[in-house]
Design a protein around this nucleic acid. Structure first.
Length: 307
DNA sequence: TAGGCCATCTGGTCCT
DNA sequence: AGGACCAGATGGCCTA
């Protein structure tokens, strides 16, 4: 019936996100205090039990529990409660760790947006598709077709997420998902530039990496193998649509940082990631090395990873 | 109001 | 015994 939250209210996303964050903080604070409340509740319960025992004593009723047994029982119950509370705290911590890892994953799949998060399930689906799409690209050993890449990327995703990915790729989701023949291969097609159609050459004047093809051209045709030119695949979003001289400080400091959908005349729907590639990361070096080599087969890649 | 998403609690199971 | 992990239950928030 209703589509997932992601993308459902994009125009007010920042407000919505901040509100949601406040709610999360409130909820977290509420549950962080829950253990204390439970302790108070337990104490009240014990006090009630004591009162009951006293009434029973005053009423001449035989004691059901000797002080010794009662103390032993209470200790056991407290111990069980304490263990349960500790287990709950551990479980919360574990889930926070899991969510933290998921957030890290969000930052490395295409179209990351800190303002409008992908849901957990969509993040996992997109990550799976992304891996598959990249694997297919490497296996093919040829320049990938943007539409085919996008189709793989969007397989099984919800419509809002599909729309976002399509937006990142400057494609029309309805068209590129309709049928394989609907879209002219991107390298031969005019390039959408905001709302206008512009030539590839014109686009190249404005962007070093305006489109997927241009990124490939820029990358593969760069003069020096040691060039600092960003490769077509980034840690954070696949494509950089920013002019070199428009890079934010964050992006400039992050060699492989990227923002998606930042074309002129079109509001960016994502923010630069705070992610910074570690200096010893092998990923850029591998890409640089692969630039002048044929792609490895999938089996070779897998062997390399597992050995 | 229904349904999606989320955080948390909880009891069970497995492992060390 | 205790911790990690898992899955079901629950309740809150949000949107269409």
């Amino acid at each position: 019936m209703r589509e997932p939250q992601f993308g459902a209210s994009f125009p007010s996303s920042s407000v919505h996100d901040s509100l949601r964050q406040e709610q999360k903080d409130h909820r977290r604070q509420r549950f962080d205090n829950l253990d204390l409340r439970e302790e108070h509740s337990d104490r009240d319960e014990e006090e009630r039990d004591e009162d009951l025992d006293e009434e029973q004593d005053e009423g001449g009723m035989s004691k059901k529990r000797t002080p010794r047994r009662r103390q032993s029982g209470a200790t056991c119950s407290d111990r069980a409660r304490l263990r349960r509370q500790e287990a709950n705290a551990r479980e919360r911590s574990r889930m926070h760790g899991l969510n933290s890892a998921l957030e890290s994953l969000r930052k490395v799949v295409p179209c990351y947006s800190s303002a409008q998060k992908l849901s957990k399930i969509e993040t996992l689906r997109l990550a799976k598709n992304y891996i598959r799409a990249l694997s297919e690209t490497l296996s093919a050993g040829t320049r990938p077709d943007l539409v085919a890449f996008a189709r793989t990327l969007c397989k099984g995703l919800s419509q809002p997420t599909t729309n976002l990915v399509a937006g990142c790729l400057q494609l029309n989701a309805g068209r590129f998902l309709a049928s394989p023949g609907d879209i002219t291969p991107p390298c031969d097609a005019p390039y959408a530039y905001g709302n206008a159609e512009t030539s590839r050459a014109d686009a190249s004047k404005h962007f070093r990496s305006f489109s997927y093809c241009n990124m490939y051209d820029s990358y593969y045709n760069s003069a020096s193998p040691d060039s600092q030119l960003s490769p077509p695949v980034n840690y954070n979003g696949m494509f950089s649509f920013q002019k070199p001289d428009e890079q934010t400080e964050c992006v400039a400091s992050c060699r492989y940082g990227a923002t998606c959908c930042g074309a002129p005349g079109r509001a960016s729907i994502s923010r630069p990631s705070a992610y910074t590639a570690s200096p010893d990361s092998h990923f850029p070096n591998e890409l640089t090395r692969m630039r002048n080599q044929p792609f490895q087969t999938q089996e070779q890649l897998n062997a390399g990873y597992h050995n």
